[in-house]
Amino acid sequence: MEPTTPTPAAPGHPVIFLGAGPGDPELITLKGRRLLDTADLVVYAGSLVNPALLDGIQAKCHDSAAMNLDSIMDLLAQGYRQGLRVIRLHTGDPSIYGAIREQMQWLDQAAIPYEVVPGVSSAFAAAAALRRELTVPEVTQTVILTRQAGRTPVPERESLRHLARIQATMCIFLSVAMISRVVDDLLAGGYGPDTPVAVVERASWPDEQILQGTLTDIAARVQASRIKKTAMIVVGPALAEDSRIASKLYDAGFSHEYR
């Protein structure tokens, strides 16, 4: 039997999945700011979205913190069918732990068009707060974005223990409440006890907090702090302050096609 084709939805503006950035309202893209300012309906991801982003906009705003998938999607679909400019506002960049896959699949089934507008990830806001480059020549040229297994499982092949063998820079999302397990797995995977690590809570927000240490002491530092969630763990040799290795990009003796 031939697969059935969804019945086209009523004409309207495509639903926009928009990355709000890490927190600082000035770290939304110019396109994102324009779309918010002209929106009619915004469904935003609860307290993770800085309310300053919504100040003064004309749209009717709904907090999705207490809503399930169906209620969120029904709201988006209703707005679309009414011809409204609809935005689903996510934090950071929606492609990383944004839970947009199931939302896009729902819209596909309903034949409702949508677009994704990227945002600044909290991983990069954390690097900026630390004033560190995540890739350092001859040290690491790889950045891993991952999380510790918890209520949401992680494939065993992607466990921190396995990923640690690469010795790259690792940005670990959604895991600070399990910091002791994170440290144990990173050490078991091959990072040395003196590997530098930082925890950045609420990167780019006014109450941003940074803890720095090594795998030997970072768990105790976190446990002694008020940090419980919304924090990024960054670990790897690229964080070492004493590295003096420089890129060859601007080396006068280095031939190159692009600079």
Score class of each variant (00 low, 15 high):
residue 155 P to V: 05
residue 259 R to T: 11
residue 226 R to N: 15
residue 169 T to L: 04
residue 132 R to G: 06
residue 45 A to Q: 07
residue 59 A to H: 06
residue 211 L to Y: 07
residue 63 D to R: 04
residue 239 L to Y: 09
residue 181 R to C: 02
residue 39 A to T: 15
residue 72 I to L: 09
residue 195 T to M: 07
residue 133 E to T: 12
residue 237 P to L: 12
residue 121 S to K: 10
residue 118 P to E: 08
residue 206 P to G: 05
residue 70 D to V: 06
residue 99 A to D: 04
residue 95 S to M: 08
residue 24 D to R: 03
residue 244 R to M: 14
residue 7 T to V: 09
residue 72 I to N: 07
residue 252 A to S: 08
residue 118 P to T: 05
residue 200 V to E: 02
residue 113 P to F: 02
residue 86 V to E: 01
residue 50 N to F: 08
residue 132 R to A: 14
residue 1 M to F: 11
residue 78 Q to N: 14
residue 60 K to T: 15
residue 107 L to P: 03
residue 115 E to L: 03
residue 10 A to D: 12
residue 15 V to E: 06
residue 108 D to T: 04
residue 136 V to Q: 15
residue 74 D to N: 14
residue 249 L to V: 12
residue 240 A to L: 07
residue 157 R to K: 13
residue 11 P to V: 06
residue 49 V to K: 01
residue 28 I to Y: 04
residue 9 A to N: 08
residue 22 P to K: 08
residue 147 R to N: 04
residue 248 K to H: 14
residue 197 V to M: 01
residue 124 F to K: 03
residue 189 G to C: 05
residue 243 S to Y: 09
residue 229 K to S: 12
residue 231 A to L: 00
residue 163 L to R: 02
residue 236 G to Y: 08
residue 250 Y to P: 02
residue 254 F to G: 00
residue 28 I to P: 08
residue 249 L to E: 05
residue 128 A to P: 01
residue 170 M to I: 13
residue 88 R to F: 15
residue 231 A to D: 03
residue 152 T to K: 01
residue 2 E to V: 08
residue 27 L to N: 06
residue 98 G to T: 13
residue 216 T to C: 05
residue 235 V to F: 04
residue 162 H to D: 08
residue 122 S to Q: 09
residue 166 I to G: 05
